[in-house]
Design a binder for these strands. Sequence first.
DNA 1: ATTTTCATGTAATCTGTTACATGATTAC
DNA 2: GTAATCATGTAACAGATTACATGAAAAT
Lengths: 179, 179
Amino acid sequence: MSTLGFALLSLLTRGPATGYQLTRRMQNPIGHFWTANHSQIYPELARLSELGHVTATEGAGPGPRAKKTYSLTARGREALADWLPKPAAFQPRNEVALKAYAAACAADRSRMAELYEQVAADAAAALAAFGEEESTMVEHGWDDISHPKFGNYAVLQLGIGSQRNLHAWATWLASQLRQ
Amino acid sequence: MSTLGFALLSLLTRGPATGYQLTRRMQNPIGHFWTANHSQIYPELARLSELGHVTATEGAGPGPRAKKTYSLTARGREALADWLPKPAAFQPRNEVALKAYAAACAADRSRMAELYEQVAADAAAALAAFGEEESTMVEHGWDDISHPKFGNYAVLQLGIGSQRNLHAWATWLASQLRQ
DNA sequence: ATTTTCATGTAATCTGTTACATGATTAC
DNA sequence: GTAATCATGTAACAGATTACATGAAAAT
């Protein structure tokens, strides 16, 4: 079982969905911390189905193929419960940080400053969007641990913190590069 | 050219090195944001060499094969300078965040709390180590933008911010899960 | 009329991890 | 003597991206 498999099981705790819907559902809010394309999701759902972690109910689709709605099975829930408390692997891939390593010895420092000013601007935009999402979530009571969508709120909180940190750092780095 | 190729060019701005040394050099500080094994690094160095971005000087090695010391060429420096200011791709892979999405609906919340308490403890340990590294860097003047190792300092700063954010978030999440 | 959304799949390619394979020197 | 460090490679596998392929319904 790959991490993607568990990601899909996690998404299915929010209710049954088609592969297409899971592709959308993954974008917000966990898309800030995990992504997958439909080309990766469809074969993985087939594997989960073979393992008995999900079941599919077929119906008429809009295109040439049948539409399959997947649901979590008891076995799937068990597999997820087993995986969740295990220590998580950390696989860092952050190009923005990587570029900072060589930024100061770059030929054109002012262009590097522009890059980090853009990073800061993007972070500010993300924070504005997150702030609105947060308000909506609080209104709906998702900030309560007993609400089934508390996880969405928790992930958003990490996103807010990460973007705030990124904003401060990129602003600092850009100002250093402007000197 | 893959991101790894540019990562290796970035590492070589600190001076010539063997594949083995690059494997070590990558661990600190950029290992917090980008990693690669030697099995990935050796073939990539061969590719960079074919492209003329690096040159290798061979010498007697400790094992059965010759030891190759790689240096950045003018073309390599150009390729790096070209890549650096371009907007960076963001490929998120964060299992800790992913697990939070399903944490609240997990069967055993107190085990999930333990997971995030451990995350917080690890972050605290990382922060302690980073603090010492930061002091050493400041003593050596790496916090000055004109120092060739300013990039190491900049990456460490992002690391400190990230761990601080992770610590605060994991502590909060654990306390929520304990309720 | 054209684009977007819904909906599912496969193929080719690229990237990354784990395991296999060798062997000298240095530290404990 | 045993383990760690230095040093370089390949092979097999797993994971992820991009491109190819089809087609209805709804929105612009």
